[in-house]
Design a protein around this nucleic acid. Sequence first.
DNA 1: AAGGTTTCCAACCGCACGGGG
DNA 2: TCCCCGTGCGGTTGGAAACCT
Length: 338
Amino acid sequence: MGRAPCCDKANVKKGPWSPEEDAKLKAFIEEHGTGGNWIALPQKIGLKRCGKSCRLRWLNYLRPNIKHGGFSEEEDNIICSLYISIGSRWSIIAAQLPGRTDNDIKNYWNTRLKKKLFGKQRKEHQARRICGLNQEVKRESGNSMIPEQDGQNPYFPQPPLAIPVPHPNQDPHLSDHTAIRKLLLKLGGRFSDDHDGANLIQRPLHTSTTQFPYQNSINLASSSSSMNFFPNPYYSTAQDGQYCTDDVCMHHILQGSSGERGELQEMHYRNAQRFEELDCFCGTSVLNEGNGTNSTESTSWGDGGSLPFPPSVSTYDYYQQGMLQESVLGDSKYPTSQ
DNA sequence: AAGGTTTCCAACCGCACGGGG
DNA sequence: TCCCCGTGCGGTTGGAAACCT
């Protein structure tokens, strides 16, 4: 027996919203709020719409301060960085971009950013393989596979975050925002009670509205210290006193409280899987086969205990190193550590 | 100008989760 | 402890608009 539908499909209008419907919904919510029950809301207003549809319309379109289109370069960077770090967690990404909705970002990524970022790379790579131009490429080793702008990848002008947030589809125990919330709480974090989910990740109190809450973390991420596992001030803000960064906490997270593989190891592993997904776009592997090490990093983090991935290397570094190696070696598979 | 193709985005769908009874 | 219900999320779809031939 299937799940009961959330509303009477036969008596529910579908498709684009009319200005009248918009006006009704907006006026009601502005005056009364949602009442905590979206399902009952359309009946109260007299709309022949599904409650979920009302909620979506409000969140994605009618809600105040919504921005549509016109994504800035900075927003592009944030989206790309976060996508690489945490995957398609659009609600989390949206929470870092004031005025943007998850749906907007998702659409923007799927229709533009993805192509913008990877399309060119894949074309170049395929052409190179087909034409057997590896030798030429070696000579042009300055040409990174990453599209560049003024000598810098426009989508990674600064190293992106490696926010250690797990991908829900890959771990049933960390399958949603609540799990992430718990995890971040474990890190010493704190959350506001934002039921819209707009502030799932705690923003530092000092963050102004004109500054991307994410901005600080980008800057911090360039550090190569081991604390780079926490490049985001939301995890490590001593100023706010909300996040633990002490050795005990670190040990717990890295190793697990009872000796099991630490959560961050798991998460880093997932980030690595994320790169394998990117592989599909790039037509190349940014990861190593086998032991998950690469030649440039083997000395600096290869002796880092059981960590299968470089704890001190940001995803950006990791990505770029891989790309650089490929362009030099002319092969998609990197040699393992020597 | 017309027809075909591609792009873009609003909206829908199904699933998973948490809360409450 | 189980079940039901509402909510929120991410993936997908349909159609309008833009672009191409």
